[in-house]
């Protein structure tokens, strides 16, 4: 591990962590009940980048909304060392009636930031995601990639140390996604965030994560955890990424095959 980023970050101001212990999530009651998650335990290090990987329907998005507190757990425990978490969805969940600036400012307004400071901070964040010239556009005037940049800026505006991302780049073309991987990596390092990133794209998980957590399907359990000891910045098309991705893909295929058969 030659990467400086893997050094302990306990001294940093914005470090945060999430610890999941035997988390169970069931929907419904009685014989018709569906167990989405069955005893998921996971400890997310402060400042780390963790990717949750699994086939569709494995409950990875469910897990994220449980961590975000959008839904109640049926068993186990979720501990936040540092409470506020920010969330980013796949479909750019921007308010279409607000401008780009307004969409970022709303997160600051909630935190009681004053008008002038709000404007200054929002413009600064738009610069961080390289959208300076688009402050007064409406979401429908932007491309998919740009909309996700706005969503990222807003998530950053929440000033949370933990960033939860639910397939944020799933709907983008490969080129745009590649570009946003670079941006996200840069911002994650600069802002010393803890990222929990859900995806079904194996290469994306290896490209971004310090760790890749492979989940099984129906019910969701932790199948395997891969430490990604590759130097950063990485490229999604580099040989080491491809090699590890191939290993994980094999495990994932076996898992999906087990259910299909």
């Amino acid at each position: 591990m030659t990467d400086t980023r893997t050094a302990p970050r306990a001294d940093t101001a914005r470090a945060g962590a999430v610890v999941l212990t035997d988390v169970v999530k069931r929907y419904g009651r009685g014989p018709g009940a569906v167990t989405a998650l069955d005893g998921v335990s996971l400890s997310v290090e402060p400042g780390s980048f963790t990717c949750l990987l699994g086939a569709s329907g494995c409950g990875k998005s469910t897990l994220l909304s449980l961590v975000a507190g959008l839904d109640d757990i049926s068993g186990g425990a979720i501990e936040h060392v540092d409470q506020p978490v920010a969330m980013m969805f796949q479909e750019s969940a921007l308010f279409p009636w607000l401008t780009v600036l307004g969409n970022v400012e709303i997160a600051l307004r909630v935190r009681g930031v004053g008008r002038a400071e709000r404007r200054r901070r929002a413009l600064e964040l738009l610069e961080t995601v390289r959208l300076s010239g688009f402050a007064h556009k409406r979401p429908h005037e932007l491309s998919g990639g740009m909309r996700q940049r706005v969503a990222l800026a807003r998530a950053l505006a929440q000033d949370a140390s933990v960033l939860l991302m639910d397939e944020p780049f799933g709907a983008l073309d490969a080129m745009t996604r590649d570009l946003l991987h670079d941006e996200l990596e840069r911002i994650w390092r600069e802002q010393r965030l803890t990222v929990l990133f859900v995806t079904h794209n194996v290469r994306e998980a290896v490209r971004l994560g310090d760790r890749v957590v492979l989940l099984s399907s129906r019910p969701g359990r932790v199948l395997n955890v891969y430490d990604v000891d590759l130097d950063r910045p990485r490229r999604i098309d580099s040989a080491p990424v491809a090699t590890l991705a191939a290993d994980i893909t094999d495990a994932l295929r076996a898992e999906v095959g087990r259910h299909a058969g």
Binding site: R130, L142, S143, G144, M146, M175, T176
Partner: peptide, 11 residues
């Protein structure tokens, strides 16, 4: 923001 992205978008 890359040209490809701009070209892909409506902007």
């Amino acid at each position: 923001v890359d040209d490809e992205e701009l070209a892909a978008g409506r902007a």
